[in-house]
Design a protein around this nucleic acid. Structure first.
Length: 890
RNA sequence: GCGGGCGUGGCGAAAUUGGUAGACGCGCCAGAUUUAGGAUCUGGUUCCGCAAGGAGUGGGGGUUCGAGUCCCUUCGCCCGCACCA
């Protein structure tokens, strides 16, 4: 019995593919193009089997599309800038560049070991000056078209390392490396104006119909469009009115205070001669904005003493507070508080004894449940003793506001108290909003407006291992000057001291000193580098023309873009995918020309998860350290108890990583690929198990034996089709052609696990063939060849070897997808279920498309059906052709 | 709190989108082969029941000739955002 020798086979075919240039795209005008791309990796060390899933999915699609006749672009590169390289440099005394390049070398080898069909001539690394010079140019273009600007903003500042930290690097309010409490600091940073595309980025999501709904939704939430109104409040004793944003202008008559963010310019101005206020603002800033701080912080505020005028009630004055729950980054950094209809405002009002004035009531008493009313009553009694407020329409309805604000705008109709603006008739929330906005506009005290949650993208990082920002600041007058295009790239210096705290480029003795190209006088370079998401926002364009002198060649991007299928993890649902969508638009607006939507199709693959174990002290253990005895888990050497944890994403810290080499050395790349493709749908998590791997290996060998030792002597290659087939041979042929059609659809629809299941079904059908006539010999060859070609996208090396064993001189990588004959695939006989009153009682086999009468007759004649009908009268028979017969009887 | 997703055998999962629930595989059981183990092959494997039969897609209700699929309700798990005015 022969065993498939993956060791020799895989290396052999990888060499042949490379030699024949199988993975180079052909830019052929007569073919449709297909650009398939997997999110490129950060070269952090070694790939494990979990990483491989992403690439194998992409490779399957690439190989399938190529076999279907597309001109396929399938490139790979390295997202090579980033902080881990600097950390490794400090820990291991190795330069970030050397560390990164060594990792790239290792990981490239690992990808090649998997037999992935990349065009390696297009490989790029973002840390290469030949790559980042182009994004420096793009940045200059952005500056020139107003899409990049400098602004002072609050950042997380690590006082020990002297560097800005990203939000993700602040853990419990402390720096992740130093453990020092993070300070908020105002720094001047570069921003990209993503907000100017907020509306477009949101509305265009609707057209991305090959993106997962959930990703579109996440982007929509992130952009956070909200429609509302800007309201101007006149302030006593000041000329400038205060601007406030609200999504509920209909509650304006319920306003009882205004609140400013501690970071609001007006608050800062007032604090200049108000020591209490200055102290309060300082305290708010210290508390920070970490999630936990927000969760536990109570609403706090301080009355500034300032008084505002209600736009419609000039005699009503509202106190202006500074409140810790108002964000400077959203809206205008100031709000009006309507405690009766907003929970936060209510909490605040209760704490500081501010009035609570309901202005809307449901008109239909039945709309408030008894329970709700009772709760309100109880709240009032328990906590506040307020008099219930009565709706103005005299229907006797009471709205009690205890500690729960009435915010339910889903109820159909309301009665509003809009002061002089209405006659007290019932209005919907939307109607009331309209009336208020109209009145505001008439008086010049506000207008309808749209605000976004999205903020401009801060791209400055005080790090070494990133792309230098190509500007300088003149020493004599501090003017910002762009580095001229012809002086690009601004290269990172190689000699850098990372052991000192602070910005390594700023610490460099000479690098930052340069000369202003306009005046010839001394200037200092910008010492910040770009956020590494900058590099990944356009790499898919560079792949189209990797060797062009400019960033990309419109001729190439016009041909290849957009990416037809992008594959990656859900963790980039917002960040990278939103930045890239912004980038293409920004490029278009700054003189480049590219497709607006970079990724036409997106698939987010699930994680590969693996078992985890922890000892008594909560330390993670390798699965090899654990043994199972009678349902209990113990640690190998000492028998101490072990807890089996949940399935977790493979990670070094949890000690549940399965190395790529471990799998490939023992079972071959193809077996590993098969497991990754067959055990779960691609978008769902996949549990990696040794038994699953062994099962896949058994299948590989079973298929190998079927091909190398077929039960029937195969017809020669290219033999003429026999005139007649036995029933068995004809049935096999039907199965083959059905499978081709189905697998094709499954691949197209990313039902990859289903496709593999169908191929196993076909394998079972082939294995069951007993006859040995000419028909069988011919049908068997047809079946084995089709199976080989169909399994090729999953197991490319195996398929090549099998194809050669079947007597072919050609190679699978250059062979088209098998042609399906739809006529052959059609069933002649169909077995359908027969129900009596909806319960299955039997089955009948009928010719395909049998007429209703025939189906009905056969169904009623079926013995089990007759038994079920015994003593009943048939009322009605429902026949769904080729599907089911249901007999209704009583 | 807001938004979204998911609950199907011992396990991973299928189900032509309202039409024979559990394909395919893992595991398990029995048998064959084998000195033995492994590998391989054959058969079985949703549950209850000797069987006939009955029950069954987290629970409850509804629509329909017919519901895993649609609607209402409820429970559980997972994910995203989170003081966003």
């Amino acid at each position: 019995m022969s065993r498939y020798n993956f060791r020799e086979t895989e290396a052999k075919w990888q060499a042949i593919w490379a030699e024949r240039g199988c993975d180079k795209p052909v830019e052929d005008a007569t073919r449709d193009k297909y650009y398939v791309l997997e999110m490129f990796p950060y070269p952090s060390g070694r790939l494990h089997i979990g990483h491989a899933r992403n690439y194998v999915i992409g490779d399957l699609i690439a190989r399938f599309k190529k076999a279907k006749g597309f001109s396929v672009l399938h490139p790979m590169g390295w997202d090579a800038f980033g902080l881990p390289a600097e950390n490794a440099a400090i820990q291991n005394q190795v330069h970030p560049d050397d560390w990164t390049r060594e990792n790239i070398r290792v990981m490239r080898g690992q990808l090649q070991m998997l037999g992935l069909s990349y065009d390696w001539d297009r490989e790029l690394a973002t840390c290469d000056p030949d790559y980042y010079r182009h994004e420096q140019k793009m940045f200059l273009d952005f500056v020139r078209s107003g899409l990049a600007y400098r602004k002072e903003s609050w950042v997380n500042w690590d006082p020990v390392d002297h560097t800005v930290l990203a939000n993700e690097q602040v853990i419990d309010g402390k720096g992740w490396r130093t453990g020092a409490p993070v300070e908020r600091r105002k720094l001047t940073q570069w921003f990209l104006k993503i907000t100017s595309f907020a509306d477009e980025l949101q509305s265009a999501l609707g057209a991305l119909d090959r993106w997962p709904d959930r990703v579109r939704l996440m982007q929509e939430n992130w952009i956070g469009r909200s429609v509302g109104a800007k309201v101007l409040f006149a302030l006593d004793g000041r000329d400038e009115p205060l601007e406030v944003f609200t999504t509920r202008p209909d509650t304006l008559f319920g306003a009882s205070f205004l609140a400013l963010s501690p970071d609001h310019p007006l608050a800062e101005e007032l604090a200049a001669d108000n020591r209490d206020l200055a102290a309060f603002i300082e305290e708010c800033r210290r508390l920070g904005t970490s999630e936990e701080a927000i969760e536990t912080a109570e609403k706090r505020g301080l009355d500034t003493g300032l008084r505002a005028r209600h736009p419609f009630q000039p005699d009503v004055t509202l106190p202006v507070h500074v409140a810790n729950f108002v964000l400077m980054e959203y809206g205008s950094g100031a709000i009006f508080g309507c405690p009766a209809h907003d929970q936060r405002d209510l909490d605040f009002a209760r704490k500081y004894g501010l009035p609570v004035t309901p202005v809307l009531w449901p008109t239909d008493a039945t709309m408030i449940s008894d329970q709700e009313a009772a709760n309100w009553d109880r709240d009032v009694r328990d906590r506040f003793d307020d008099d219930p407020l009565q709706a103005p329409d005299g229907e006797g309805l009471k709205l009690h506001v205890g500690k729960a604000a009435f915010t339910d705008t889903s109820r159909a109709k309301y009665t509003y108290d809009l002061g002089s603006l209405t006659d007290g008739r019932a209005l919907s929330v939307d109607e009331a909003k309209e009336i208020v906005i109209e009145a505001l506009e008439q008086r010049g005290q506000g207008e309808a407006t749209v605000r976004y949650r999205l903020r401009d993208w801060g791209v400055s990082r005080q790090r070494y291992w990133g792309c230098p920002i190509p500007v300088m600041y003149r020493v004599e007058d501090g003017a910002m000057v762009l580095v001229p295009d012809e002086d690009l790239p601004v290269e990172l210096p190689k000699d850098v001291d990372l052991s000192q705290p602070g910005n390594p480029l700023a610490n460099h003795p000479t690098w930052k000193h340069t000369t202003c190209p306009e005046t010839g006088k001394p200037a200092i370079r910008e010492t910040d580098t770009f956020d590494t998401f900058f590099e990944s926002s356009w790499y898919f364009l560079r792949f189209c023309s990797p060797h062009a002198a400019s960033a990309f060649d419109a001729k190439d991007t016009d041909y290849w873009m957009p990416v037809d299928q992008y594959i990656g993890g859900i963790e980039h649902a917002v960040l990278h995918l939103l930045y890239s969508r912004f980038f293409t638009r920004a490029l278009n607006q700054s003189g480049h020309h590219v497709t607006e939507e970079p990724f036409a199709g997106l698939m987010t693959q699930g994680m590969v998860v693996h078992e985890t174990y922890q000892d008594e002290n909560g330390n993670w253990l390798f699965p090899e350290e654990v043994s199972e005895t009678g349902g209990a888990f113990v640690k190998e050497p000492d028998g101490s108890p072990v807890t089996k944890g949940r399935l977790e994403k493979m990670s070094k810290s949890k000690k549940n990583v399965v190395g790529l080499e471990t799998v490939v050395d023992a079972y071959g790349a193809d077996t590993g690929r098969l497991v990754l493709m067959s055990d779960s749908p691609p978008e769902r998590d996949l549990e990696w198990t040794e038994t699953g791997l062994e099962g896949a290996w058994r299948y590989v060998n079973r298929l190998w034996r079927l091909i190398t030792e077929p039960a029937v002597t195969l017809a020669p290659v290219g033999a003429a089709i026999p005139n007649a087939f036995s029933d068995e041979a004809a049935a096999l042929r039907r199965e083959v052609h059905k499978t081709i059609l189905a697998v094709e659809q499954d691949f197209e629809g990313f039902r990859l696990n289903r496709a593999v299941a169908r191929l196993r079904e076909l394998t079972n059908a082939i294995a069951g063939i007993k006859g040995a006539g000419d028909g069988e010999a011919w049908a068997m060859r047809e079946a084995l060849e089709a199976l080989t070609l169909m399994i090729a996208p999953v197991m490319p090396h195996f398929a090549e070897e099998a194809w050669a064993m079947l007597g072919h001189q050609s190679i699978v990588a250059e062979t088209p997808w098998p042609a399906a004959d739809a006529t052959l695939a059609a069933d002649e006989q169909i077995t359908i279920g027969v129900q009596v009153n909806g319960k299955l009682r039997g089955t009948v086999t009928l010719p395909k498309d049998a007429d209703q009468t025939a189906a009905e007759g056969a169904a009623l004649a079926e013995p089990n059906v007759q038994r079920a009908l015994d003593g009943k009268t048939v009322r009605k028979v429902i026949v769904v052709p080729n599907r089911i017969v249901n007999v209704v009887a009583a």
